[in-house]
Amino acid sequence: MKILVPVKRVIDYNVKPRVKADGSGVDLANVKMSMNPFDEIAVEEALRLRESGAATEVIAVSVGPAKAQETLRTALAMGADRAILVETEDAVEPLAVAKILKAIAAEEEPGIVMLGKQAIDDDSNQTGQMLAALMDRPQGTFASKVAIEGDHVSVTREVDGGLETVKLALPAVVTTDLRLNEPRYASLPNIMKAKSKPLAMKTPADYGVDTAPRITTTHVAEPPVRQAGEIVADVDALVAKLKALGVA
């Protein structure tokens, strides 16, 4: 069984994004970029499934600019077998990404498509669900545990009220939550080895997908700033403050 792992190149999660002065977007020039952290968890989970014998091949795929090759090389250095970049310099919305992934899935026929539950740039939380809809296959979103059971996958999901378990017929789409695993670091020898692993270059047109955006961002602004309040001297002063708020 193959596992397809879509990964996205995003601003590094440790970097505080700055809104451009003209309100046209977030300034990404000379900003450290990394693999979306949820996608890193997806790569790790796919590798573990391969290492356990449940999967045979892990294919990383990205839809993005030429520089997303770096993101794919990271996935390869972690242990993915090969990679596909669907290159476009335009911003591609989740629906169009899902359409491209559907076309790739039709070619590769993976048993599982494993991807992050959301990207930390646009915070959309849509691609996995949309892909599952387009493939007409089941989805296990926000996964904190994944187990292959014959021709099914059991997915434990982080939901508002606790942990929910669903059983899905394969092939299926799984989106990862934070506690699923702790991704490995790529070792230096593996980083070197990754340079010679196959990385296929494609374009959205190769899959016949129109990536024209449906949603226009007209303005991007800084969020309203909260003002720092008052530092109180001791617990008694804090108690007085809380009482004034009607808390105690």
């Binding site: 949309m130 926000f142 949603i215």
Partner: peptide
């Protein structure tokens, strides 16, 4: 978590780009 799970699937079936959150 239910809305976030279900609605993008609806959006894709309708060929609509969802506006999240």
């Amino acid at each position: 978590t239910t809305g976030k799970n279900v609605l993008p699937r609806v959006a894709a079936m309708l060929d609509v780009m969802q506006v999240s959150d």
